[in-house]
Design a protein around this nucleic acid. Structure first.
Lengths: 339, 339
DNA sequence: ATCAAAAGGTTAAACGATTTAGAACGTTTA
DNA sequence: TAAACGTTCTAAATCGTTTAACCTTTTGAT
């Protein structure tokens, strides 16, 4: 029993294929009576509608949106920030009957999907520079989130200002301050940055965070040596542990450690507590993102709350609307118990 | 500047379209020399390969696998069990150059994707029975995880035995025992089950867990009243809180509470601790799944550890291999500090 | 020298729809 | 009466490939 095609149906009903197609897609092209007659007959004989694969080819539209996640999907999916973002995206896509294709940002190329997806939402800078280039040159809509791509609409919070504020709240003049940063330089493992060249400094949001920290430090008259800035290649606990150990063992130990994500900060906090260090008495810690777990820990984390769900929803909305203006979303300072 | 097609390229190179196609898809159909000549020429003139949309139609194969998640994507993506599962799936798909389409299990129908995806991985029973039926009747491969679909290969652990073991470890004769269950009955909100008809009891894995609990209880000579079994509609903290409050306020309070997931158990634990109840002194708690957070809490949770990543990898592998035999994966009992 | 099989290539028919241009027809309007 | 028009439907081109069938030329074995 082969699958029915438009042609089969047309033959059976004694009308042209165009009419059947119109019955499904363009109600204004035929009389209402004929339309319901056709639709009923289709249901009767078990034709569920035009074949989607053929539609994709012919219409050049698939209703599939690719969500390009920085790095491999491996890390991204379990990252609470990324996964709530996905949640937001999926919600809006679903409302609009679109489908969600997860795409790894560490892929070589988008050639294997660009022909059939309707657009791209890009979450975080792809590991692979070639991918960014391809995304920018290809003709379909792109929305970027937490990073920037020339000429494409972006969704961000004001990372510089937010980081400035949280840092300012945490530090006092004379403090020794360390920073646990994220993707500041191109390195596959956790390390101090020393004088390594900064990565994509122009368009990277973590560099904006660094800018914000530095502004607050400067105002307080504090200097940070590059070897007190750590770099993590991805936002995952496994990388954070190593940095946490190193920074906590340095002597003299910092008074304040500014972390570019809650994941990092929480790992650090746990590490510190297990070493018997009093937080915030002996050590103050700030995070970034405002994930749920950060509010559940004792002491709970001082951080910058941003709504990942909202980001996701906004990015999907933006992509579907075709608007080209970038969006800056609000954030909220949460001065928890770690400063 | 329009996009190049196979035809354009063929004309330019003075060969047939079939040869170009073969150069890309079937190296054995033409001489190696000609092949590299063609491939080089394509690179030169900027033809990146056959249009994927056309390929999908013609070949009837898209390299897209739909991951059907029980319920809406909203909850699933942030659930650590589900997201590590996705991680496993995505890893194997990526190794095999397949793409991942996230599909909501609370959808009405799969007609909008069935024409172009290569197969389905179904994680948890879809909310919508019609969807299960459609999945089963449609012709493409299906692999089910944590639920069963007649005649389709499934991936599960031995839920009955695992639940039996963890319950047995937690209870002593004479205990008062409550159960916080998951999807046992069809209800949109948290409630006690009383005498409500069980949902999909045959094929549901949470009913297997219930069976396991009951076996252990029976052996210990303990009876559970239906009104001491709660049902949560989805595995999310928001539903767990309500059940936790209710069960902890009942008097006399249970000595042991068996939870069908760690998410539920952790919410209960937090609730109990904040009420000043000593765990495990006054109350013992067991979970299910073995999520990371369960190991991080104080006291850490007694639970059944199963590897979601492995489940994900295995399910993708199974789908791609075309094998039809179901798989039973191992689990590990972790007798933490809550019993 | 002969012949079957293999190699390397081409032609043309699918794959299953959408959509433009225009035919057929009844109804107004000048 | 005929031109003009709106409506409803059809024919045919198109989307960009893949692949079965076919035709030549080489190759290898006898």
């Amino acid at each position: 029993m082969k699958k029915l095609t438009l042609k089969d149906v047309a033959k059976q009903l004694g009308v042209s294929t165009a009419t059947i197609s119109n019955a499904f897609n363009r109600p204004d092209q035929l009389s209402a009576a004929k339309r319901t007659e056709i639709l009923d007959a289709c249901k009767e004989i078990g034709y569920t509608g035009p074949n989607r694969a053929a539609q994709i080819l012919r219409k050049g539209q698939s209703n599939i949106v690719a969500l390009v996640l920085a790095d491999s999907l491996d890390y991204m999916v379990t990252d609470p920030v990324a996964s709530t973002f996905i949640q937001g995206v999926s919600r809006v896509l679903r409302e609009n009957q679109k489908h969600l294709l997860l795409y790894a940002g560490d892929s070589d190329s988008i050639t294997d999907v660009v022909d059939f997806v309707d657009g791209f939402i890009c979450y975080g800078a792809p590991r692979n520079d070639a991918l960014s280039t391809q995304l920018n040159q290809q003709g379909k809509p792109v929305v970027t989130v937490d990073f920037n791509l020339e000429g494409r609409p972006a969704i961000n919070i004001d990372n510089e200002q937010a980081s400035y504020e949280v840092a300012k709240a945490a530090i006092k003049p004379g403090d020794r301050v360390a920073i646990l940063g994220l993707r500041l330089i191109d390195s596959p493992s956790t390390c101090r940055i020393y004088d390594s060249p900064l990565l994509n400094a122009e368009l990277s949001i973590t560099h904006r965070r660094l800018d914000g920290y530095c502004r607050a430090l400067k105002e307080a008259g504090i200097q940070v040596a590059p070897d007190w800035i750590w770099n993590l290649p991805e936002n995952a606990g496994v990388y954070a542990v190593q940095a946490a150990k190193e920074v906590l063992q340095s002597s003299p130990r910092p008074d304040v450690i500014l972390c570019m994500s809650d994941i990092i900060a929480l790992e650090l906090l746990q590490c510190a507590l297990s070493m018997g260090i009093d937080v915030p008495g002996e050590l103050r810690i700030t995070g970034f993102d405002g994930i749920e777990e950060a509010a559940r820990t004792r002491p709970n984390l001082a951080t910058v709350c941003q709504s990942s769900v909202q980001k996701g929803m906004e990015s999907a909305r933006l992509l579907l609307s075709g608007e080209t203006a970038s969006v800056t979303l609000p954030y909220e300072l949460k001065l928890g118990e770690t400063i």
